[in-house]
Design a protein around this nucleic acid. Structure first.
Lengths: 247, 247
DNA sequence: GGCCTCAATTGATCTGGGTCAAGGCATATA
DNA sequence: TATATGCCTTGACCCAGATCAATTGAGGCC
């Protein structure tokens, strides 16, 4: 496999709506078809959804919780290569194996489709293929955006980039609109942040403290973040024009 | 835009063959259609093919030469996010703008299709969309593979990873089959290598010298490389199981 | 030959972030 | 109340790779 993620606009609280989102233009018939091959799966925090190299028998979307895609070297070094948030798509039509470990970072509920029928359906309905192509292109943009972060940014800029992406993704949580302060809870441990950013957890912790001391963010407890000024945060990220990994 | 690259198997010396490669299963009619909207463009080494943010009016494949996708920060730091080798596809059906600078690293010849007609054709022929989806998924895998390189590997491992990818891509150039020594010319300056690997050109140079001193590679001049033992090189890359950026 | 220019090498020094190690602070278990 | 466990913070030190700088070498051109 390889995994695709994409934030589909619209209501993501229930699965059938997501079917519509997967293919906004497809007819009721196709939705029915999708309905008939869907099923739900639950995963606990820390549980591995899919091992790298496994053949995977399903594709699906994350309904709730956070999952992550990680690659690991023999000596244990790991790099997170993608974050899956609710409404993101998992799976690779046309491929058997997974290229990464897919792990539930929090408790996760997924809505799955058996792979074979899904592929059959996709072959019959061009709109689904087009939608998947679009999603994959967005994923590719996001991955490449992240290559700049990993290759060229300082630790402080990396942290600011991650916070800014999460904040943007959770724009709905802003109490006073996108211009006002942003408030959100970090869905990741310091270690997970480090794996995403190509840093150590100690450096993540230090830079979080530094951003706090400098008033770029406010921290309540370890996870609850307030960003008084998004513009300032994005400056810190070294990134005016912007594109988010989570598309 | 965003750009997709993929090494299509088969003869890449002439353009019509590549049309067939874009859609191996499409009928003659479709090839004819593609023929009628194609045209060639030449670019000199160093020339920018497409600026980030530009609307792009074409898609196409690289016929000869090397092009690269780069992202640049305001202060000048740059990261290469993709390499386009002959037979690789450029363009993003369905999107207008480019997200990256596309630059000719050497002299480049491209076979282009005007974007609109290509999209129309794609909408009519599902096989093309499927092929593009596959290519994009490969690109995504490659980009994520590279995230591990950028985030977690040492300078020496990064260099070895790059050499091993180029060597594998040029497997045909091995005089004694894939098991024998590999010989190839580096298509990149030290600086371009550095931009790809998230290093400085000095570090690239030092690590090349080190790999040479340790017998991992032989250097004739600055660009002509012999790899006596590919297994050794891949060990140095910290990468037994393997996936190539250039898919 | 002499003189550019551009790519690459090599040396000397500095520093951001890694590494190792010691707590702190919750929530959980007894 | 004690005790463990998971997550996080902070400090002290070190080193891989960045930075600054000098030099070499291979064409190309007059």
């Amino acid at each position: 496999m390889s995994v695709m993620t994409h934030h589909i606009s619209g209501n993501c609280a229930d699965c059938p709506i997501r079917h519509r989102a997967v293919c906004a233009r497809c007819e009721q018939d196709e939705l029915e078809e999708l309905e008939s091959i869907k099923y739900y799966r639950n995963f606990e925090a820390g549980q591995t959804i899919l091992w790298s190299g496994d053949k995977m028998g399903f594709v699906g979307t994350v309904i709730s919780g956070i999952a992550s895609l990680t690659q690991t070297m023999e000596d244990g070094r790991t790099q997170m290569v993608g974050l899956l948030l609710p409404s993101d798509f998992v799976g690779r039509p046309g491929r058997d194996g997974s290229a990464y470990d897919v792990t539930a970072t929090t408790d996760v509920v997924m809505c799955c489709f058996r792979k074979k029928p899904f592929e059959t359906l996709m072959a019959q309905t061009p709109h689904i293929a087009h939608r998947l192509l679009e999603m994959t292109l967005d994923e590719l943009d996001a991955a490449r955006e992240w290559m700049l972060v990993l290759g060229r940014k300082t630790a402080r800029e990396k942290i600011a980039s991650l916070l800014s992406i999460i904040a943007r993704r959770d724009a709905s949580l802003s109490p006073n609109g996108p211009a006002g302060p942003m408030v959100f809870d970090l869905p990741l441990t310091r270690e997970a942040m480090a794996d995403y950013l190509g840093l150590t957890l100690e450096t993540v912790s230090r830079q979080m403290s530094a951003l706090k001391k400098d008033g770029v963010i406010l921290l309540e407890g370890k996870r609850h973040v307030t960003v008084p000024d998004m513009g300032r945060l994005m400056e810190e990220a070294g990134d005016d024009s912007d594109g988010g990994l989570m598309a």
